[in-house]
Design a protein around this nucleic acid. Structure first.
Lengths: 105, 105
DNA sequence: AATTCATATGAAGTACTATTCATATGTTTG
DNA sequence: CAAACATATGAATAGTACTTCATATGAATT
């Protein structure tokens, strides 16, 4: 494996930052984590995160627009889950990494 | 290794989100990436990122406060680098992951 | 010690974003 | 079809954050 280069273009930086920015809000982060392991409907996400359904819906729209989450209607409910396996992995890994770092000290 | 649980406390979510938030700005992300592989002085970071020294300094203060970067004075210059090996790894991995995802499509 | 270079700090303005409340859309059930 | 439920959307507000410009601090050199 070659030495990792960390230089990126301006466009890449902006795109990358956008993904981080979405995770950079506690409400959104909790929402993402809630429906990452398995799809969850909006009201369940709201209950689990203790956020209002309206607020959850607003955030879900952003996460959906960024292709991080994917929506699927089932009757009255709409289920949200990771957009794809890769997204799931990336996010799970990021969280795991940061939690490791956090629990050291 | 047990099945990864992704549930986190409110405090953890806030702390985690704070780290993501810092990476969620293109200017800051570029700054971090610039001085991650080896310590760089402020003016070099400014040149590399095409940002004003003043702006770079402002952002460096935030990154330093969050213990992501570490400052060391050498004469007139102040060199900034990863606060520790773990931080370097976490950030490099996050970037690598996201770049993989990005280059697929 | 005065000047010059490098970095830091402070104030100000502009823009953005999270949240709430009210309302609308869409779906099922009686 | 009406009522009830789930989700989505829109407007308004309040708090925050990025950036710039001016200025200050700190270090080296002559």
């Amino acid at each position: 494996m070659a030495k990792r280069s960390l230089s990126i273009s301006d466009d890449q930086a902006i795109e990358l930052a956008e993904m981080f920015r979405l995770m950079g809000d506690a409400s959104r982060l909790k929402i993402v984590l809630t429906c990452l392991s398995k799809p969850r409907c909006v009201s369940d996400i709201a209950t689990a995160t203790k956020l209002s359904p309206s607020l959850v819906s607003h955030h879900l729209r952003l996460l959906r627009a960024a292709r991080m989450l994917r929506a699927e209607r089932q009757g009255k409910q709409v289920y949200y889950g990771a957009a794809d396996e890769h997204v799931r992995c990336v996010i799970a890994d990021m969280v795991a990494h940061v939690r490791e770092t956090d629990s050291e000290t």
